[in-house]
Design a protein around this nucleic acid. Structure first.
Length: 474
DNA sequence: AAAAAAT
C-alpha cells in the first residue's frame, strides 16, 4: 500500500469511510446505582462500596455507550477486512491479561475498544492509529490493553511508552496499567513524572513507562535512563493537546523523533480541533483512523447554565449561594489562573466552606495527596485550573463550575477545553450539571460563542432565587 | 494562561 494513495484517501475521507452504525436504545433510562447506606461504616467498607459502585457503573457504561454511538473506521488499506471483535477472547489476549480485564469488571469490549483493539492487535504488522471518542468511553483501557498485549515481560527494559499531559493523569492511567497487568507478576511499570528521581547512570528495568513530557524527554535523552530505540509502542493520551502548538508539541515531537522507525504510534483523545487533526495525520505515518462521532451525547446528559454577574466579587457571592446545592455530590471549580484558584480557595475557606486546591504551582507530593483525598471523597469541592480539565475520572463529580470561562492565549473561546471540563461530570451516562460564571460583556460574548459552537442551549440561572437552585440540585 | 524539566 503506497503512502501517496493513502494521502488521497484522507482527502476523500467521506467516500472511503466504512461506517458501522450502532443501534439506539429506547428512551429507557438507567437508574443510578446506589450502595446501601447503613450506618457506621468503616473506612475500609466505604472504600469497597465505592469500588463496587465504580465497577457496576463501568458495566452500565460499556453497554450504554456500545449502543448509542456511531463508529467510523478508516483503514490505511481500504481492501483489508474490517475487523470488529465482540469479545475479549477473540483478541487472543494472554490468559493473565484476560484475567486482569475481567477482574476490572469489563465483560466485553466497549465500542472504541472493539474497533481500536481490532485495528491494533489483529493485524500482523503493527499499525498506527488515531482514535477519537468522547470522554468515558473506555479509551484508557483500549490503549492499556494494546500496550500490555505487545509487551514482552521477560525483556527487562522499557518497550511501551505512554505520555500524559499532567502529573495527575499519569498517576491515574498508571493505576489502570497496574490493575490490568497485575496477573503478570514479572511485569513492572515506571512513572516518569516530576519528583521521581533516580540515581545517575541507573537504567529503567520496567517494561512499561508512563509519564509526562518533560521528564520522559530527560529520561530518554540527557539522563539516558531509557533507551528510546527499543520502544515498540508509543501512546499519546489526550493526543490533541500533546501535539498542539500551544500544548506539549515540542517535547512530544522530540521524544517521537528518538523512537525507532517501526515503533507503533497510538493517538487517543476526545477532541481533535481541525488543524490539530490535520497535523496528527502528518505526524503519524499511515494511520488507521477511528471516530466515535457523537459529540452531542456528552452534552445531552449535562445540563448547562450560566450565572450573570458584574464582577469577580459578585461571582464569588453567587458561588456561595450555590454552595449548598453543589456539595450534594462532588464538584470541580475551574479558574483561569493559578492565582485566581488559590484566591478563590482561600475566600471560600474564610466563609467556612471546606474546599481543596489543586494547581501546577504546588509541590507534586501535595498534588498527589489532594487528588487522592478528592478521589476518596474526603474533599467534596476541588478548586483547580486547567490542570484538571482533562481525563481526571472521579465518579462522584456531578457539578462542574467554570468560575472563569475557558479561553485560549488570544482570549478566544476554547471549545475543546470547555468540552473536556464539563466532561468531568455526566460520566457513565449519569446526569451532570455545568454552571458558567459570566462577569462582563466580554465573557458573555465568549459564552455565546461556545453555545453556538456546540449548538446547545445554555440557560440562565438566578442564584438569588432559592427555588431555582432547588430545581437544579434536585 | 496552564502545563510541562533534574533546565
Amino acid at each position: 500500500m503506497a503512502t501517496d494513495s493513502w494521502a488521497l484517501a484522507v482527502d476523500e475521507q467521506e467516500a472511503a469511510v466504512k461506517s458501522v452504525s450502532g443501534f439506539r436504545l429506547g428512551d429507557s433510562t438507567w437508574g443510578v446505582i446506589k450502595t446501601s447506606t447503613t450506618a457506621e461504616k468503616t473506612d475500609e467498607e466505604e472504600k469497597e462500596d465505592r469500588a463496587a459502585q465504580s465497577l457496576l457503573n463501568k458495566l452500565i457504561r460499556s453497554n450504554l455507550v456500545d449502543n448509542t454511538n456511531q463508529v467510523e473506521v478508516l483503514q490505511r488499506d481500504p481492501n483489508s477486512p474490517l475487523y470488529s471483535v465482540k469479545s475479549f477472547e477473540e483478541l487472543r489476549l494472554k490468559p493473565q491479561l484476560l484475567q486482569g480485564v475481567y477482574a476490572m469488571g469489563f465483560n466485553r469490549p466497549s465500542k472504541i475498544q472493539e474497533n481500536a483493539l481490532s485495528e491494533i492487535l489483529v493485524h500482523v504488522c503493527p499499525q498506527n492509529l488515531i482514535a477519537q471518542s468522547q470522554s468515558g468511553t473506555g479509551k484508557t483501557a483500549a490503549f492499556v490493553l494494546a500496550m500490555l498485549s505487545r509487551v514482552e515481560p521477560a525483556d527487562r527494559y522499557p518497550q511501551c511508552l505512554c505520555l500524559s499531559p499532567t502529573y495527575e493523569l499519569a498517576l491515574q492511567t498508571g493505576k489502570v496499567i497496574e490493575q490490568m497487568g497485575k496477573f503478570h507478576p514479572e511485569l513492572k511499570l515506571a512513572y516518569a513524572v516530576r519528583g521521581n528521581k533516580l540515581e545517575r547512570g541507573q537504567k529503567i528495568n520496567e517494561q512499561i513507562v508512563i509519564g509526562t513530557p518533560g521528564t520522559v524527554l530527560d529520561w530518554c535523552s540527557k539522563l539516558r535512563f531509557i533507551d528510546p530505540k527499543r520502544i515498540k509502542v508509543f501512546v499519546l493520551d489526550e493526543a490533541d493537546v500533546m501535539i498542539a502548538t500551544q500544548g506539549h508539541q515540542d517535547q512530544s515531537i522530540r521524544i517521537q523523533r528518538m523512537l525507532p522507525r517501526n515503533c507503533q504510534m497510538l493517538l487517543f483523545s476526545a477532541t481533535f480541533e481541525d488543524s490539530v487533526w490535520k497535523f496528527a495525520q502528518k505526524v503519524v505515518p499511515d494511520p488507521n483512523i477511528i471516530k466515535l462521532k457523537r459529540e452531542e451525547e456528552t452534552l445531552d446528559t449535562i445540563k448547562q447554565y450560566y450565572v450573570l454577574c458584574n464582577n469577580r466579587d459578585e461571582k464569588f457571592q453567587a458561588l456561595c449561594n450555590l454552595y449548598g446545592a453543589i456539595t450534594i455530590a462532588q464538584a470541580m471549580i475551574f479558574c483561569h489562573t493559578r492565582k485566581t484558584a488559590s484566591w478563590l480557595a482561600a475566600e471560600l475557606s474564610k466563609e467556612g466552606h471546606q474546599v481543596a486546591l489543586l494547581s501546577g504551582e504546588m509541590m507534586v507530593e501535595q498534588r498527589a495527596a489532594v487528588i487522592e483525598r478528592f478521589r476518596e471523597g474526603k474533599e467534596k469541592v476541588l478548586v483547580t485550573t486547567n490542570v484538571c480539565a482533562r481525563g481526571i475520572d472521579v465518579e462522584q463529580v456531578s457539578v462542574v463550575i467554570n468560575f472563569d470561562l475557558p479561553v485560549d492565549k488570544d482570549g478566544n473561546p476554547d471549545n475543546e477545553t470547555y468540552l473536556h471540563r464539563i466532561g468531568r461530570t455526566g460520566r457513565f451516562g449519569k446526569r451532570g450539571l455545568a454552571v458558567n460564571m459570566v462577569d462582563s460583556k466580554h465573557s458573555m460574548n465568549i459564552l455565546n460563542r461556545i453555545q453556538e459552537h456546540f449548538n446547545k442551549k445554555i440557560e440562565r440561572l438566578d442564584t438569588d432565587d432559592l427555588d431555582e437552585i432547588e430545581k437544579i440540585a434536585n
